[in-house]
Simulated assay, not measured.
Amino acid sequence: MPASVRWMLVIALVGAAYVAGAKAGRSRYREISRAARNLWDDPGVKKVRDKTYKKIEKAASRAAKKIGA
């Protein structure tokens, strides 16, 4: 089988798998998306996120001072 035919076959199979997965996976995607959003909005996660942002800002400020910016 020539290489170009193999590539066309691979592309066709990937396309078919994508379409089938997209149709079957929409509800699972929504479920995962909802869980991720709930985790992101969790008060404990928000607290840690805020502390992390403050530490990053301090480190960036110190680095800027060191390089004279």
Rank of each mutant, 00 (worst) to 15 (best):
K46Q: 15
A64Y: 02
K51H: 08
A20Y: 07
E57F: 07
G15M: 11
G68H: 08
P43R: 11
K51M: 06
A69G: 05
V10M: 03
K55V: 13
A35E: 03
A64N: 04
A69C: 09
R26W: 14
K54H: 10
G25L: 13
G21A: 04
L9V: 08
V14C: 04
G25A: 13
P43K: 12
R28E: 12
K58S: 15
K54E: 10
M8Q: 06
S4I: 06
R34V: 11
V14E: 00
G68I: 08
A16Q: 01
I67H: 07
G68V: 10
A69F: 10
A36E: 02
V45N: 15
S33D: 04
S27Q: 13
K58D: 11
K65P: 01
A24K: 08
A60D: 08
K54R: 14
S27M: 10
L9T: 06
K65Y: 09
K46R: 15
Y18T: 09
Y29I: 09
R62K: 10
I56H: 11
K23R: 09
K51G: 03
G21D: 04
R30D: 05
K55H: 10
R62N: 12
V5W: 08
S4T: 05
G21H: 06
A36P: 01
A69I: 12
R49T: 12
V45Q: 13
K46M: 01
D50F: 05
A64F: 02
W40P: 02
D50I: 10
V10A: 03
A17Q: 02
D41C: 00
V48T: 13
I32R: 03
A69T: 06
G25I: 12
L13A: 03
M8T: 07
Y29D: 03
R37Y: 12
S61E: 14
D50T: 14
K54G: 08
A16P: 01
K46S: 02
S33K: 08
L39Y: 15
A3P: 00
S33T: 11
P2A: 15
